[in-house]
């Protein structure tokens, strides 16, 4: 391998590769938000819900943790979503796009993992605070929203940034159903330039920086919402 050839190939490929960043970020933001919006209620249901509901959440979590993302991508893209968009009234909404299917399978999988992050955080809070909230006349819904979740979400940020970095790398699988994110572009350009190693290197560097930016950002957020003297075990 000629080093200078590889280097110039990498350099030339950069604009095209960076064009995939938008898709990757779109996948991640969509999937993280979907996972958050589902993960929080799932966690609350699993901790405070009635037994049948807790069981449903348990099945959900096992299902999405147990089925590989690649398998889900195929099921969603070639199966569920193309069937959905064939239904009257649902055509033309873009439901059958590879991007939608990828966000769904990444997001639903993430909802299972995120729910367990939040569940752990909720259960680590001292039970007395919920009691105190009830004693003040708060309904359980009010107490969970104003007392439990603000603390649980703060405690979840470190694990959440871990989830972000995992999901970011999982998102590379979306190339298999045709989302033109970083990985897809890497493969395309490698097959025309015959420089797979340097292209992989470029893709790796881009993924690394996306991870770094996200994790750094979440650390900043963690510090911004930090409460004086607050530790994982509750107040010292």
């Amino acid at each position: 391998m000629n080093f200078s050839v590889a280097l110039s190939a990498a350099h030339d490929s950069l604009p095209y590769m960076l064009g995939g960043v938008g898709w990757t970020v779109g996948l991640i933001v969509g999937a993280m938000l979907l996972g958050l919006c589902l993960g929080v209620p799932l966690a609350v249901a699993q901790v405070y819900g009635p037994k049948p509901l807790r069981r449903v959440v348990g099945v959900w979590v096992w299902l999405f943790r147990g089925v590989p993302i690649l398998v889900q991508l195929y099921i969603f893209y070639f199966g569920l979503m193309s069937w959905l968009s064939s239904l009257p009234g649902l055509g033309g909404l873009g439901l059958d796009s590879p991007f939608t299917a990828a966000v769904l399978s990444l997001g639903l999988t993430s909802s299972a993992y995120q729910s367990q992050i939040f569940r752990g955080a909720i259960q680590s809070l001292p039970a007395g605070q919920l009691k105190a909230a009830r004693a003040l006349g708060m309904s359980d819904r009010q107490a969970i929203r104003t007392i439990v979740l603000p603390q649980a979400l703060r405690l979840s940020i470190p694990a959440w940034s871990n989830e972000y970095s995992i999901l970011l790398k999982d998102s590379a699988l979306a190339f298999t159903i045709g989302v033109v994110e970083i990985m897809a572009r890497m493969r395309a350009i490698a097959s025309t330039t015959h420089e797979p190693v340097s292209m992989s290197f470029v893709a790796g560097v881009i993924f690394f920086f996306l991870t770094w930016i996200g994790v750094k950002g979440l650390t900043l957020l963690e510090n911004k919402v930090r409460i004086a003297g607050y530790t994982r075990q509750g107040a010292a």
């Binding site: 001292p126 605070q129 009691k131």
Partner: peptide, 18 residues
């Protein structure tokens, strides 16, 4: 509404830490 009218003080305070 009943609990609002009955104040409760706990042994370990149970302040809202956040």
């Amino acid at each position: 509404s009943f609990r609002q009218q009955v104040g409760m003080i706990f042994q370990d305070f149970n302040l809202f830490d956040h």
